[in-house]
Structure formats: structure tokens, C-alpha cells
Design a protein around this nucleic acid. Structure first.
Lengths: 224, 224
DNA sequence: CATAACATACATTCGCGTATGTTTGTAAAC
DNA sequence: GTTTACAAACATACGCGAATGTATGTTATG
């Protein structure tokens, strides 16, 4: 069997990507051979090497296919001078979490990215594109946070960088833990509460610029 | 060369663990061969197989050696009926972050755990011990949060489970991102601000029990 | 008929587990 | 307090399977 039609070839490529999601998730990226991916898709290694350069290329394509909608969200949120930046920030954060909750493919791929792969130089292409997305994400958030401080929705001396780090860390942590067991709780329902909790803290007790040690609730210093 | 003294044998074991930290971090756990670890420690594979059963055993020992102090922290924080549970919670959270900031070995190992390994069934021993630590950590936090709600330091109808999920996610996210570049910011200095920000939000706008959709700042629903 | 879309075959390398060799602390026997 | 014998603490050698990249087949499409 060989030489399928154009449409069939596209289907096999999709099936290979689907198989990669399944097998990478089950066995981890490094431990899975391309033969396993191929047989899981009902093909042989020849098909894989025809559509993709090597495993890194396959992995990259798999990630791109899944993260495309979330990338688009961040693109959309940055361009206009929004009238209500705090609401924009909330919508963006809650939307990202809820879009993960609604997209089974994104859940699989994020589980792979967070728990089933090793960040090494050999996946340099994926690594840099991932770092770019992260930097762009952080930049978007910090821009909006700073706009909140400028428009008075947050205190003027808010440390936008630290506030951004915290929000980003919160979202990364939520995704990181939730994909381990999506049945643990309803992320779609919980996302607003979690984000609003953080944003309320940001209004109530934000990190201030030019402030090293925060007095906080308890003045006792911790051992080490 | 063979048959060193007891003390020398312990030293070589430590050197093997040190080498494992270095090589695992550089090349990822799965991609590193035991030969690489051995040569990096100035030994051969014979030494590795003498001190450890296989790679999983070496990895487990490396993790245990590094996470021991942090495990002890959580043990210490749970036992007594603390008078000020909210302060206990803050001390525990800030202390965990600052202990990471102060311990170079913990930084290396956490970077390996978060970014240089793949959670698969083959590392079952490590996986379950890690899950146990995570469950114990979550349990400790939730117990303290519930105590805060019971003693009136937080609203009585606070959803302790969700509040715990958020705090845990925040800390995981902070560690997850910070170990990627410890020079990005001073974690020891930033930890109190980040934790106090979340705890302030917890007092100001906590998740409530028996409450599905939170009204929040912006009622608009997000696409998908 | 030329080539896209694969399947098959081949050579090479790499890592693992084990088996065996070697040296030397170390503790009991004398 | 030697000496002897045993085993600790490694090094070396072997055989095996598995995965990779490429080279070469095969078939049907455009």
C-alpha cells in the first residue's frame, strides 16, 4: 500500500499526531520510540519519517496544533487600549483556564508538556518557541497590570513585575496540578473564584515598588 | 583499585549523587546513561550498580537527599494546635519558598523534578513517594486553612479545599518558574509579598462553600 | 511516467544488566 | 600481633535488545 490521495495523506498525518499525543502521554516523550507512535497510528516508521524530520519535529507539530487556540487568546487580548484593564486581565486569566478545561486535546498536550517531557537542549526548537510564548504571555500580563496601576484600578506604586510573576505562577500552578487529575474538581467553575481571589489580594495588599521586606501578618523570621 | 574504607565508600556514594544532580540537570533523567553519571563522578558503572539497584533507585536517593529538609518543615508545622493558624500558614509557605532560595541543592533537584524528568509508571517508587508528599502537603495546608475558618481568622463558610488548591498551585507555580532562572529575581525577598498577597485575597474575597458561579468583576463568558 | 506516500530492509550505535575479575580493608583465628 | 580468609568496593568484559537514520523497494496518483 502506498501513494494515497492528498486528503488521505493529511488524515494520516493527523492520525500520527493523535497517536503521538496518546503514546507520549502514556510513556513519556523520551521513552517512546517512533515505531510505537507509528504502530499506534496503524503505520510504520516510514510514514513518520515522511511527514516529520524526527521526533523533535513531531513533538513540535503536536504542541503547535494544541496550543494554537490559547496563543490566539493572548494575541487578541493585547492589541487595543482596553477601557477596563482589570476586567481584561480577569477575562484573560479565567478564559485561559476555562479554555483548558473545555479542550481535551489541550489537556493531553499540557499534561505532556508539564509532566511527560524533559527540557533539554536537543529539543531546542520547541524550547525556544515555548520560551517565546512564555515571555510573550508574561509581557502581556505585565503590560495590563501596569495599565491598571496607571489608571488607578490598582495602587500607583504597585510592583507590576512581582504582581505579574504571582499571577503567572498561580495559573501555571493550577494548570500543572489540574492536568494530573482533571476529575479532581471542576476547573471551569473554580477558575473565576481562584482568579478573583488573587485579584482581590492584588487590590487589598499589592507588592509595592522600592520595598524589600514586607512586614506582613507575622514578623517572625523563618529558620532557613 | 578496590575495597576502600567505609568512609571512602560513603564519599563515593555522595559523589555519585552529586554527579547525578549535575548530569540529570544537564541532559535530563531519561537521556543520561549510568555511564555518564559514573564518569562524571570519576568512577565506572560498577560503582553505580554497587551502590544503587538501577537508575530509578539512584534518582530516588538523589530526591530523598534533597527534599529531606523541606519534608521536615511540613512535619514540624502540623502537629500542635497552633494558636495563630493563619500565621502558621504564612510561616510555612514563606519558609518553604525561602528554604528553596537558600538551598542550592534543592534548587538543582527541584529543577530536575519539574523540568528534567518524565512522570511514568517505570519510576513507580518515586512517583508514589512524590504523590504521598504532595497529598501530605495538601492535607496539612487544608487542615490549617480549615482551622482558620473555624477560629474566625477567615470567613466561616470559606471553601477550604479551593483555598488550599489555590495556595498550593501558587507555590508550585512559583517554584516551577523560579528554578528555571534563579537569578531572575530575589525569591527570598519576594516570598513574603507573594504569599501575603494571596492571603490578603483569601481574607478579602475567599471562595465560599456551596457557590458555583462567582459573579466576579466581569460577567462576560469566554468563547471556549 | 515521474513522483508522492508510504513500507521494508540494513547497518550502526547505545545502554542496560550481569557475570566475572581484582584489590584491599577487616575481623576472627592462632 | 601476625596471619589468614572472607567479603566489601569497585573495575572490566560480555551479550543482548532496542532505537535511530538511511537506503531502497513498491504502488498508485496526478
Amino acid at each position: 500500500m502506498a501513494r494515497r490521495t492528498k486528503e488521505e495523506a493529511r488524515e494520516t498525518k493527523e492520525r500520527l499526531l493523535d497517536a503521538a499525543e496518546t503514546i507520549f502521554r502514556e510513556r513519556g516523550v523520551t521513552r517512546t520510540s517512533l515505531a510505537e507512535v507509528a504502530t499506534a497510528a496503524g503505520m510504520t516508521r516510514g510514514a513518520v519519517y515522511w511527514h516529520f524530520k524526527d521526533k523533535a519535529d513531531l513533538f513540535q507539530a503536536m504542541c503547535d496544533r494544541a496550543t494554537m487556540p490559547m496563543d490566539a487568546m493572548f494575541e487578541r487580548a493585547g492589541d487595543p487600549g482596553q477601557a477596563d484593564p482589570l476586567a481584561t486581565l480577569r477575562d484573560l486569566s479565567v478564559g485561559a483556564l476555562q479554555s483548558l478545561a473545555a479542550d481535551a486535546r489541550a489537556q493531553r498536550v499540557f499534561e505532556i508538556i508539564f509532566h511527560k517531557t524533559e527540557r533539554v537542549d536537543e529539543l531546542a526548537g520547541t524550547e525556544t518557541s515555548c520560551a517565546n510564548a512564555r515571555q510573550q504571555c508574561l509581557g502581556q500580563i505585565e503590560t495590563i497590570v501596569q495599565r491598571c496601576a496607571d489608571t488607578g484600578q490598582l495602587p500607583a506604586d504597585t510592583d507590576a513585575a512581582l504582581a505579574t510573576l504571582g499571577l503567572h505562577a498561580l495559573m501555571v500552578g493550577i494548570m500543572h496540578e489540574w492536568v494530573l487529575d482533571p476529575t479532581a474538581y471542576d476547573l471551569h467553575a473554580a477558575a473565576p473564584a481562584l482568579i478573583d481571589l488573587y485579584l482581590a489580594g492584588l487590590r487589598e495588599h499589592p507588592p509595592r515598588l522600592a520595598q524589600r521586606a514586607t512586614p506582613g501578618v507575622c514578623p517572625k523570621t523563618v529558620p532557613a
